[in-house]
Design a protein around this nucleic acid. Sequence first.
DNA 1: CACGTGATCTGACAAAAGTCAAATAGCGGA
DNA 2: TCCGCTATTTGACTTTTGTCAGATCACGTG
Lengths: 321, 321
Amino acid sequence: MPVRSADQIIHKAAWLYYTHGLRQDEVAKHLDISRASVAMYLRRAREIGIVTISTSTELFSDDVLARETEDALGLETVWIIPEDRQAFNPSVEMPVVAAAAFIELINKGDRVGVAWGRTVYHIADVMPYADLQGVAVVQLCGNLGAPYSYRPDQCTTEIARRLNAEGINLYAPLVLSSERLAEELRREPVIREQLLAITDCQLALYSVGGIEDDSHLVKCGAITAAEMHALGQAGAAGVIAGQLIDVDGQWLDCAHNRRCISADLDSIRKIPKRMLVVQEDSKYEPLVAAIKGGFASHLMVTASMAKRLLKRAKGAGLKQA
Amino acid sequence: MPVRSADQIIHKAAWLYYTHGLRQDEVAKHLDISRASVAMYLRRAREIGIVTISTSTELFSDDVLARETEDALGLETVWIIPEDRQAFNPSVEMPVVAAAAFIELINKGDRVGVAWGRTVYHIADVMPYADLQGVAVVQLCGNLGAPYSYRPDQCTTEIARRLNAEGINLYAPLVLSSERLAEELRREPVIREQLLAITDCQLALYSVGGIEDDSHLVKCGAITAAEMHALGQAGAAGVIAGQLIDVDGQWLDCAHNRRCISADLDSIRKIPKRMLVVQEDSKYEPLVAAIKGGFASHLMVTASMAKRLLKRAKGAGLKQA
DNA sequence: CACGTGATCTGACAAAAGTCAAATAGCGGA
DNA sequence: TCCGCTATTTGACTTTTGTCAGATCACGTG
């Protein structure tokens, strides 16, 4: 066997086939071997990794990153928001792209759940108008007076309005002053039904909250900064639909969560398409927790965030359970 | 049509198909579209150029260069000798690789022509031993006493010996003192037959000579340095099988050529596989002439030479006629 | 609101690619 | 030099893919 002749012929066959677009029998004729051999060489070429989806051109680098992140994290779809590009601000563009992607995920007759947060509201704010009759937009978490102009029910209502869909609000506060009251309210038929109906959603849209002092729950007055600190000590890692989750994405057994009226985390996990949109790169830890907890099947993040996730996944093996 | 969703689905389909190796119907199921659409997206992906032969990994960069050079110059096979790699000296390695590649080109019962020169001798010197009975190694050009230890007949003989093949020497001088004598000798039946038989060769091996003062013809005393200078002025660009060619690779009408006993250039051009091996990067112009003249179907050069050829071909369009 | 436009789906057929058992060739060791 | 081993190659067969015409659908327009 002469020097590299084995690789040589494999590479040449792959070149003629993939770059020149010849048929296998043409390649065979060209190299004076049988077509079956060409098929074999091509299989090897693929195994070796000679043939790849274009990564060389800058054009597709984000797409490749998206695909790799999907594979590494076991997600169905990942959207990457480029950031290096000048005049391209994730905090402005991401909601627009997210809204478009979100609409794409909706099928006729679907029931879609919408949680709450700055990100979700921003998405609602740029949601294109569409005619999705027969679609129902349901509120995933209880209400809460907000220091800014977006309350959970407003998100739901606004999205439903824009999509010309039915809006189904949850007529309950997000947090109650006592566990007992929360428990009782949850048992109320109206509320109970609505919470149960969440399992029927085909699609959910939410972000994940942080547990810093400037977190949404703190700003809205649902939790004091001091309490949040304590919760962080107790293992809280992020917020999903108003509820705290630990580093593994599991429901955190704490006073706040017990006093919460919101979608049961397991109900959310059962929703087939769970679209998680994260704008801020600072939400890395909450995001990791959310992914671990299985709260994302569809994820939209910045390129740098995706790279961090990918790096971590490759190193340790962060897969959703 | 949402932001980039068109490209998005094309890229994803290509990813699942090419990287994950899913079948088209599996991809279709995954993306919830018809198989026909998958086929369409994949076609577009190929058209756009999403699928490529790996160029990212250093591993194959030389192979890619080889394929590109083949394409640009219309050659059948190009071998690249890497040079950047440390402890890899083209002048040492190339003959070894050339010898191996040369043997690969020989088929049972073939008649192979061998010309003469430092390069060819070096190849002969490292030619592996093989048992190629039924193969004939024929000498392409007349003999010439050499200042070093390699004469044309020695090249032929040595290669034939190593390959255990039949050696057919050309019993004539390369250059005669008069055109008349050369003409008469060419008409001699023995010589004539042998020269005609060159057309029957399936394979030829040679290098291309330069026209500098240190060129082989000058060193061997066939041409004086002064004559060579004049020939250069007259349009000589290189030497093939002892004969001068112009910049277009055409036979140069000059005294030397007319006094030469060697393979007719057209006979050489008719040989299906013409393996041209060039070690020195300084032979760029002669090489270009040789390629233009159609003297190469198989070419072995250094990476830097290939790059120069490629650059030129891309710019101007240097294709063999 | 009918219309045209462009994209996608369906189903079916032809073409190409994948696969496998058996034949063959190359290669090292006895 | 012969033998047996392994890896490659072949030819025949099955599966997958490419492609087409017509139907359908979404969407923007006059």
